[in-house]
């Protein structure tokens, strides 16, 4: 059985590609576009990192919209922002426009643990866990913050979902089915897409299958910072074919 994935095979998508608009990436949007064409992608999302103080989003969008059209290649936009706290507040500029005239989606990132009082460093999180915060409660805080962030984002995409867990000594296997179901429900309800991320190798097959079964739209993501890695999948391809999400390639 092949689970329905919406319109596109996720290996033909790369919905998380950074350019020089992100501080640390090395390739220009044009180079990423060429790489996407040469790799045979059907859809690419150009994404750069923002925070509340970011002012360059209009310039970024202008550059993407000025790129030459490539037949058979859809070009989408996004900004990536971290979840700041347990309320799901996102690290985006106040004047960010999402949808018509703005970015197509906000990528919701678990760069830090979204604590009740703001971002917790991995060390702080480990200390809280060691001091008695049950792992299940920590996972619930993270899942609830993620659900709230999806509601706030409007049109969101979960970037490298659960990539935080190894850094705080936890593993996806500790997630309850209810946790995954809450993410899936919110993703369907809000139209949020979820990445299967090559760079951070997450989420794992169990979560991916549960999300797919719930009708969540899954997209491929390399989290590329350099054109040579755009659309290049190994872990995602294996995970996807192993879980029969796509045919063997």
């Amino acid at each position: 059985m092949t689970t329905a994935l919406g319109e596109l095979d996720l290996l033909l998508t790369d919905h998380h590609v950074h350019s020089t608009w992100s501080d640390d990436a090395v390739s220009a949007p044009m180079e990423n576009l060429v790489a996407a064409r040469d790799t045979g992608l059907a859809s690419i999302r150009m994404v750069d990192h923002v925070r509340t103080t970011t002012t360059w989003v209009p310039g970024f969008l202008a550059e993407i919209s000025a790129l030459p059209r490539v037949e058979g290649l859809e070009v989408l936009t996004g900004v990536e922002a971290k979840i700041l706290d347990a309320s799901g507040r996102l690290d985006v500029p106040d004047d960010l426009v999402v949808g018509a005239g703005g970015v197509d989606r906000v990528l919701i990132a678990d760069h830090q643990f979204p604590g009740p009082d703001g971002p917790w460093s991995p060390r702080r999180t480990l200390e809280e866990l060691a001091a008695g915060l049950p792992a299940e409660d920590a996972l619930s805080i993270l899942v609830t913050a993620t659900v709230r962030a999806m509601e706030r984002a409007g049109r969101g995409q979960l970037a490298h979902l659960f990539s935080l867990l190894p850094k705080i000594g936890l593993h996806e296997s500790e997630l309850l089915d209810e946790h995954v179901a809450a993410i899936a429900d919110a993703a369907v309800r809000t139209g949020t897409t979820v990445e299967v991320n090559e760079k951070w190798r997450c989420p794992g097959p169990r979560v991916v299958l549960q999300l797919a079964a719930a009708g969540v739209t899954l997209v491929g993501s390399t989290d590329s910072h350099e054109a040579t890695t755009v659309g290049r999948y190994s872990w995602v391809a294996e995970a996807a074919s192993a879980t029969r999400l796509v045919g063997t390639r």
Partner: peptide, 9 residues
Amino acid sequence: DAGARHLVR
């Protein structure tokens, strides 16, 4: 690895 190269100011 290509994915691990970064430019800094």
